[in-house]
Amino acid sequence: MSEVILEVKDLKKWFPVRRRISQLFKGEKSWVRAVDGVSFSIKKGEIFGLIGESGCGKTTTGKLLMKLLESTAGQIIFQGEDVTNLTPEGISRYKREIQMIFQDPYASMNPRFKIRDVLLEPLIIHKLGAGLEERISMATEVLEEVKMTPPIEFLDRYPHMLSGGQRQRVATARTLILSPTFIVADEPVSMIDLSTRAEVLQMMKEVQQDLNLTYLYITHDLSTARYFTDRIAVMYLGKIVEMGSADQIVDNTLHPYSRALIAAVCEPVTGKVNLIKEVPIKGEIPSAANIPAGCRFHPRCIFAKPECWELEEPGLEEAEPGHLVACRRYQEIV
């Protein structure tokens, strides 16, 4: 449980934006700083949650880990090996070790593929399994692992013939077929009916324990993260603003942004079902092309003081063992 499987050091992804003519003359460049210096490490067998509202860079971080995007700066160290710049063989090896579950399981499967084709594709690409028979039996195995029984019934169906929950099970099965050690799950249940969410998460957790996997769980939904993850990092505009164990984040929230996220989770108070809670946050998330100076959260922070935007941006500091927060005033505002 203590061995670090994945370490991310100061990871950055800046997308160039089209320049205005005046900038062109001055030779300036504008960037969308989608991921702006993110560091964290994930231990083997852990479920690590990455939380934030849409546009905060959490999905980009996931794609950087999957090597779907090339990072601008920083390092990704996987099992002690720097995977930021890999040879083609290295990438092929890495891609067997690390897999991804997508937000929309239906869109993540070719509509012309049967479940059989969806599951066999990675095996065919990586030339695993001798012949069709062995590959099919590998496919039935993973389908059983995700509780799609009897597996035979599903092999010849098309994705559109399955329910949302079943699709996400198949999507999970596909990631398992290469027997990876690390899985990035990008909002795996946000497109699924509320009623089946818990079931799918339960299945994912069982799979994780069965196969001793490590998950990076990306979500905007604190309520599922709280029960599903071991540790949580809260991301805002491309940076981590608070990180700690799930209990620390939820029960001893320090950063004003995390507080707003928690307040946004509607938990009806007995006797006050009609009460709409006031969420302690102002305005909307600014564009990542124009990140505010000083603490990047200050325009929306209800605790902001001039020091927050006049002084330079606060870094992550340890508030209690294993609990990091990037806020100047966290001690004052408890």
Partner: peptide, 23 residues
């Protein structure tokens, strides 16, 4: 997204073009 899924599965450019895009 299924194109990204195929990339993650390790599919080469030509695999993606011939198995996913052209069909």
């Amino acid at each position: 997204p299924y194109i990204e899924a195929a990339k993650i599965a390790g599919g080469s450019h030509w695999h993606i073009i011939f198995r996913h895009i052209i069909p």
